[in-house]
Nucleic acid binder design. Sequence first.
DNA 1: TATGAATGAGTTTTCATTCAT
DNA 2: CATGAATGAAAACTCATTCAT
Lengths: 199, 199, 199, 199
Amino acid sequence: MRKVDHDSRREDVAAAAASLIANKGLEALTTRALAKELGCSIGVLSHYFHSKEEIVIAAFRWADQRIDLRMQEAIADDSPNIESFFPVIKAGLPLDAESDLEWRVRLNLHTFALTHDTSLQAEREKNQQFRDLMTGMIAGLQNKGHVTKEVSAEDITSIAFDLVNGMAKNLVMCPFDEREQKAEYLYKLIEMLRPLPKP
Amino acid sequence: MRKVDHDSRREDVAAAAASLIANKGLEALTTRALAKELGCSIGVLSHYFHSKEEIVIAAFRWADQRIDLRMQEAIADDSPNIESFFPVIKAGLPLDAESDLEWRVRLNLHTFALTHDTSLQAEREKNQQFRDLMTGMIAGLQNKGHVTKEVSAEDITSIAFDLVNGMAKNLVMCPFDEREQKAEYLYKLIEMLRPLPKP
Amino acid sequence: MRKVDHDSRREDVAAAAASLIANKGLEALTTRALAKELGCSIGVLSHYFHSKEEIVIAAFRWADQRIDLRMQEAIADDSPNIESFFPVIKAGLPLDAESDLEWRVRLNLHTFALTHDTSLQAEREKNQQFRDLMTGMIAGLQNKGHVTKEVSAEDITSIAFDLVNGMAKNLVMCPFDEREQKAEYLYKLIEMLRPLPKP
Amino acid sequence: MRKVDHDSRREDVAAAAASLIANKGLEALTTRALAKELGCSIGVLSHYFHSKEEIVIAAFRWADQRIDLRMQEAIADDSPNIESFFPVIKAGLPLDAESDLEWRVRLNLHTFALTHDTSLQAEREKNQQFRDLMTGMIAGLQNKGHVTKEVSAEDITSIAFDLVNGMAKNLVMCPFDEREQKAEYLYKLIEMLRPLPKP
DNA sequence: TATGAATGAGTTTTCATTCAT
DNA sequence: CATGAATGAAAACTCATTCAT
């Protein structure tokens, strides 16, 4: 048989699909366009996916996981403090071309999920896991005195979560050269989480 | 007279289209489905709109404007203070069935705009207008001592803007009975805008 | 609206489909070929049928009912006797071009039903009704002394039923000019049903 | 040696194809499904057959010959009489699972032949041979006084031939436990072939 | 021989749009 | 104005066949 890595080929397809979704929109993701983007025949697609919907889902997962991975890699494992947040959050925002593409796909996923129950369920579960993780981290920081206890860990999580989603949506609509600056206030907000100096 | 009828008919179509978008997704908005939703023949649509894209845009505008209108109506014209924010923000969030539908459409619009330049431009201009308006209002409140000056009016606007967008996206994914509670932290955040009592 | 009789249009489609099935086989019944046969565009088909399978079923029913109708019309209502059988059976056999087409479709249906439960069920029910009807008729003739009681009405029905099916299959494989002759023995067989003259 | 392997492999393919045709229908016989049924890769098929049509024909022949073989084996070579018919006819009907499968394939073949001239020709020739053989046998029995001369050998052959085809089609549509009983009348019919006792 | 990835023509199906009534 | 039948381009999907490994 010809040597091909099935999983890696699937990922190629997913990445190409994600690229189309990001640049032309979900409705432009046709099997023809995708085959062209991949430089192969349309028949190839059915080797790796049973239907177009499967491809769409794979593209969504591909982009979603890359954003998450990017953030995980930015997490400093040892002795986290307020400063640790900055790189993680930067990693989670669409500040360069690569993450811009991924966020465009993720935003499509959010809309898609609104009317696709399975995706909606998956989305909600993923969010909940993420929130639990983050709440735990913040509570840890609070206990170590790195973060103010004036706001509950849950509320900080909620703020961060919604803010990142809202800002990401906002950023992908802006030219790249305005994004860093637009994201700046977020860092100021983080600063406000420092505990007040004890009198 | 005839003009009124014509416009009101166009709005009916837009509303029906919005309903379909919200409940079934943009890809489920077909001319047949729309005619069925409206209880009329497909031929009618071409009397009021030249193409399907026009209908989509009209649905987007319809929903968008209703959210904005809802917020404007909640604005207390005279002597605004921190408390004035609460009803406005509530009015701007998808907390009931009606606003839920509108937000679902708006979220579709956001995704749509990512790959449709005209809509993107319109979206950005609208946002800018809204931000300018809000920044002005907050600066006024700051001058009157109702809002802390520790954070700039621009930053408060940015926070509010992104937060509402992120939260709205979040809320439409939740059951209605969890929404009020999920939105609660926003009100706490507003409380933090109060100026510190002078020592 | 354009004046069209929906049901009659459906029948046109079914008839055209039946013609294709009879002449080219079920696998040659494509939407393209059918549209061509009908002299219309492929889109028309979806106005009258939701799927190709529906069309296939309609074609089967069309042919099936025409054979049955042909037989019913040949039934002499009043005072039936042995002679009454001849025209009915002739009407039920593929002896001319029209009934040949219908039988070809019916034979396709029989094969189709083997692996399509719904059709199989329908086929069996129809057969049972037909058998019950025929058994009743024969019993009546037996009581009136027109038909021998040496063979039970049920057995005569079974013989007739299987014989007609087998013979029809046989006849459609023959040139038309051989068919009448091939069917002749059936009439002889019917003669044997006459009761023996009482000694 | 190698030739044997080759032929046996071809038969495996034909048998697997026949199984698919019988259980899922001719349209379900795809190269992929066949490879799966065989437990091998699709590439194998092209080693043993040049095209799918060849495989279909082979499957038809496989089933057809097995029915014929089954009947031949049931023929009592020496001193045949009326009783000799019973086991032959039973062997020729789809009364158990094995012959059921073969008859399902044969019925597919009959339909297939309607629109495939080569198969039709083959079918007709085979039938004619069979009829000639049977007519000869019956004439022999008539001469020996085992079978009535009231009906010509040709007519008896025709009756038997059509009856078996019709009944087979009938039986494969019934549950197995009803088949023996449904076939019973055939044996009664054979009894009627006995010559009348001379007065 | 055996494999199964790749091809691409062909099929069903969907759908915005047009237009005769 | 309203209707919905008709159109046909374009979509997703199927599948026999080929061929590099």
